[in-house]
Design a protein around this nucleic acid. Structure first.
Length: 509
RNA sequence: GAGGGCGUAGCUCAGUCGGUAGAGCAACGGACUUUUAAUCCGUAGGUCCUGGGUUCGAGUCCCAGCGCCCUCACCA
């Protein structure tokens, strides 16, 4: 028996020799001039029991196989859809019929034949020639329910994609959204750049980084948590409209809206400000929604989200007052409210307490797209203070369905203030929870003159969730992080492996 | 990180009060030239997540561990 093969797999492995005995390669090869199954199916005649003279050529995976003796029906699936193959013993000839006898569910085959419709009305290819393209060894999941277990579906996403066409469709939507964004920004003359993903200072956001090590340089490096600082250096260099779409890593918890690695869009527009960014954000997201062609009233779970422009704009202070009846500067009332809600207040800066209240009571309830503008300056160390009101910063966050989708600033370009803010850590904040991490090299860049600019960050995964009615981030990340399975790596399992002799013991039968 | 739930055949799931493990699909052998979750006859298939414990006896009860899911906390 072949090593590692289950009994069910062994049955299929044994068929490989029979296939070779027919002079065929079980792993197939090039198959030219195929048409998509959706295309072919749409050309099938209306009338049941008819066959056209149109010869079609399709390839795909066998998802259904009904053996009626001297006729076999196969449901063939490709990315675009499914069609039935009708294979009659007499019609197809001995050579092809021999192949039919060795087929299993989930094998990949190509077929050529006349397009028609069976008596029972099923669009079918009446096969004249059959090509085995790849034999499958693994036993497929149950044909009707498929693999239901979420763990299997995530770990073996390919199974999920094969048995649930909407899974593949969702990733195609994601690709469409990203393609739209690149086209949109290209039209506005933004330049796409790729900046380093390993930083010696993990700046630009408040998050715990992943740590790694470069051997030759013998230095500690951090996987980036934001794209911000390198892109602003590009602004200094004269790339006055610049963006990057890239992966960032944050060493935090995992749940329905958080994956340790996710994709950010960040862009910077010289001579703009956060007002400029609001217009751009609306145009970009509405454009992306339109690119999917599902209109602007988006179903999301039990709700409908109306994306029609213009979107509401409300100040942070205003929204606090709406919810709690007090504003940004009513620190005593905020403290009392926080204690009532069992929010930790000891040793915390009043604005940090205020922000906790904002996140708990306000932002969760913003369902329709809402720009929350003018944040407390103290929690925005990379943002320009508002002209005439130093208390707040020119920042907005866009909330849709209670989820933060975008974050934008009028960028701080005063190197002296920036240096000061980098060295001021708010009381009660851990270093890792602060955006204020001193980056001398970045300050040096600002000293050469960064133009006034608007900057914007959008979480692509969350945007895709919203536009594809996905309830968890794992539905839009093709291989979300899971703990490795036993024996597949990871510290514990490798330690276990060091001690066992399983591999050597296998000779016994 | 805390609390709760789940883990049985390749897959989908049953398994009563603790008494030697069940079905459907898939597989294997056979019948069938218009089926479509095809049908019919027959056969085979189990580390009941892992390791302990209680018991005459554990899939079932207890303890520990592993994995996944949900809620909460941190975070976008």
């Amino acid at each position: 028996m072949t090593e590692g093969a289950s009994k069910l797999e062994q049955v299929r492995i044994d068929k490989l020799e029979k296939i070779r005995a027919l002079g065929l390669d079980p792993w197939g090869g090039r198959f030219d001039d195929r048409q998509t199954i959706a295309d072919v199916a749409s050309q099938a005649p209306e009338e049941p029991g008819t066959t056209t003279e149109t010869v079609v050529r399709v390839a795909g995976r066998i998802l259904g196989l009904r053996d009626k003796g001297r006729v076999v029906f196969i449901d063939l699936q490709d990315k675009t859809g499914r069609i039935q193959l009708f294979i009659g013993k007499k019609q197809v000839g001995e050579e092809n019929w021999n192949i039919v006898g060795l087929l299993d569910l989930w094998d990949l085959v190509g077929a050529e034949g006349k397009l028609g419709r069976t008596k029972t009305g099923e669009a079918s290819v009446f096969v004249e020639s059959l090509t085995l393209l790849t034999k499958t060894i693994a036993h497929p999941p149950e044909k009707y329910h498929g693999a239901q277990d979420i763990e299997i579906r995530l770990r073996r996403r390919y199974l999920d994609m094969i048995q649930n066409p909407e899974v593949l469709a969702r990733f195609e939507s994601r690709a469409k959204i990203v393609r739209f964004i690149r086209e949109f920004l290209g039209q506005r003359e933004f330049v796409e750049v790729e900046t380093p993903t390993m930083h010696s200072i993990a700046g630009g956001a408040a998050a715990r980084p992943f740590v790694t090590h470069h051997n030759a340089l013998d230095i500690e490096l951090f996987m980036r948590i934001a794209l911000e600082l390198p892109l602003k250096r590009c602004l200094v260099g004269g790339v006055d409209r610049v963006y990057e779409i890239g992966r960032v890593w944050r060493n935090e918890g995992i749940d329905a809206s958080h994956n340790p690695e996710f994709t950010m869009l960040e862009l910077y527009e010289a001579y703009g400000d956060y007002e400029t960014m609001m217009e751009l954000t609306e145009s970009l997201i509405v454009g992306a929604a339109e690119a999917l062609g599902n209109g602007l009233k988006l179903p999301y779970g039990e709700r409908e989200i109306d994306m029609t422009r213009p979107w509401r704009r409300a100040t942070y202070d205003e929204l606090l007052r709406e919810k709690y009846g007090f504003g940004l500067d009513d620190t005593e009332q905020a403290r009392a409210e926080a204690i009532k809600r069992e929010i930790e207040v000891d040793g915390k800066h009043p604005d940090v307490i205020m922000d906790a209240l904002f996140e708990e009571g306000v932002s969760d309830e913003l369902v329709a797209p809402t720009f929350v503008i003018d944040y407390p300056a103290s929690i925005c160390p990379l943002t320009k203070r508002k002209a005439g009101n130093e208390r707040v910063a020119e920042r907005f966050e866009l909330f849709i369905n209670g989820m933060e989708v975008a974050n934008a600033y009028t960028e701080l370009n005063d190197p002296l203030l920036q240096e000061q803010l980098f060295s001021t850590q708010l009381e009660g904040q851990e270093e890792e929870d602060s955006m204020a991490k001193m980056d001398h090299d970045f300050i040096a860049a600002l000293k050469h003159g960064m133009p006034p600019a608007g900057g914007l960050g959008i979480g692509i995964d969350r945007l895709v969730m919203l536009l594809t009615n996905s309830q968890t981030i794992r539905d839009v990340i093709i291989f979300p992080l899971l703990r490795p399975e036993r024996g597949q790596g990871g510290k514990e399992s490798s330690e276990e492996h060091a001690g066992d002799g399983e591999v050597l013991d296998d000779e016994s039968d």
